[in-house]
Simulated assay, not measured.
Amino acid sequence: MSRNATTDTTKLGRRTFLAGSAALGAAAAAALPAPAIASGTIELRMVTSWPKGLPGAGTGAERLARTIEEMSGDRLKIKFFAAGELVPALKCMDAVMDGTADLGHDASFYHHGKNPAFSVFFAVPFGMTAQEQAAWIYHGGGWQLWDELNQKFGIISFPAGQTATQSFGWFKKEINSMDDFKGLKMRIPGLGGELLKRVGGSAVLLPAGEIFAALQSGAIDAAEFIGPLNDLALGFHQVAKISYGPGVQEPGGMMQLMVNRKKYEALPKDLQAIIRIAAQWMHEDMKVDYDIGSGRTMEVLRTQHNVRFLRLNNDVLTGLGNAAGQLLQDMMDAGDDHMKRTLKSYLAARDNTMRFLRFNEQAFLNARTLGIKYPTA
């Protein structure tokens, strides 16, 4: 995203991202033919949880669909649907399971209610960063555990986007102690939501397109949704002026591309590989889009909209961290065999990746804060 594109997003505000209605979605569903194979072309339907044109997640999912088409030489043609155009934003997994859609792009923690382990494969509070999580998924046994879970629901999933460490959220009042979480109603899904409950708050699950209205009306007191790149587009700065970091609830948010398992297994091997490799490319592409775009829009929010970017103090971070540790211990103690094996694998990977990152990369990041004389743009 260029600086001009960021400015354009500011001017457009929220209108671009809140288009669509339930009636439109129903009409689209009724008019669609079943996926077809004609003249060597396989037609697939792809749904997402993201408002049309939403920077990062939304635009990335659409690029992924077009990339799969191009890599396949148009042997695969994908009909792309933003949130609400075919199914509601939080029903992507159901649509892929029942064949309404062939592919879906969303965040697995939206399906925490189906099985809490789905949240582990998106983000764990005080868990692994984006690169650590990728190491676990690709080289530490994480994907095999994820696929074991997905088989029960008739889908197969691939990492297909990363938000990196998210913001902690938007607040109308400062958070100065753990007592400030008591009674707080916050839009926060997955294990972050479970963490909030542990410290006395109430977690609310809402899709991106419904957060602004809930925050504006007072239905919720605070909200988190990735970070500045999306927050500017969704207009949160219009109703709240404090953005807290770091996003300890989601230190690395891994998006997924779901595919109906029967549909995927029926594809030729080369087309299966194209879907898998395109998803892996999007995993990196979306992360760097967020990396550079969030920094730019953070400055827009600070200088043009008077947003205060504050850091959670150490007492609050320690309180949240201890609550997160107890949450994971309780999940291991009460979980089924798969949950126990998943968390043990996750924690082993965290220990291994953190060992060298602490010594090397974290030390380097700390070194950049030492007041070194360095040119700026």
Rank of each mutant, 00 (worst) to 15 (best):
G193P: 09
S157P: 01
F171W: 11
K185Q: 11
L215N: 05
V199P: 03
G190M: 05
S157H: 08
L205K: 06
I175N: 06
S177P: 11
G218V: 15
G161P: 03
G183M: 03
G190H: 08
A203C: 08
S167D: 15
G193S: 07
D231P: 01
F158L: 12
F158R: 05
M178T: 15
S167H: 11
G200V: 00
K173E: 12
G192S: 08
A160D: 12
A203S: 13
F225P: 03
E194A: 15
L191Y: 01
G190S: 10
I211S: 00
P159D: 00
L195I: 04
S202A: 07
N176G: 14
L206K: 01
L184Y: 11
Q162T: 10
I155Y: 08
D180Y: 13
L206T: 04
F212S: 03
A203W: 02
F181Y: 10
T163C: 13
F168K: 14
S177L: 09
F168S: 09
I175D: 06
G227Q: 06
E174V: 11
S157V: 07
L232C: 08
K172W: 09
L232R: 07
G161N: 10
K197E: 13
D179H: 15
M178F: 08
K197R: 12
L205Y: 00
A208M: 01
W170A: 00
G227V: 08
K172G: 04
E224K: 04
L229M: 05
G169R: 01
L215D: 00
I155S: 13
F168C: 09
D180I: 13
A219H: 08
V204K: 05
P159A: 00
D180Q: 11
I211L: 01
E224S: 15
A208R: 01
Q166D: 14
R187L: 01
F168L: 15
A222D: 12
I226D: 03
N176V: 11
L232W: 04
D231G: 10
T163W: 03
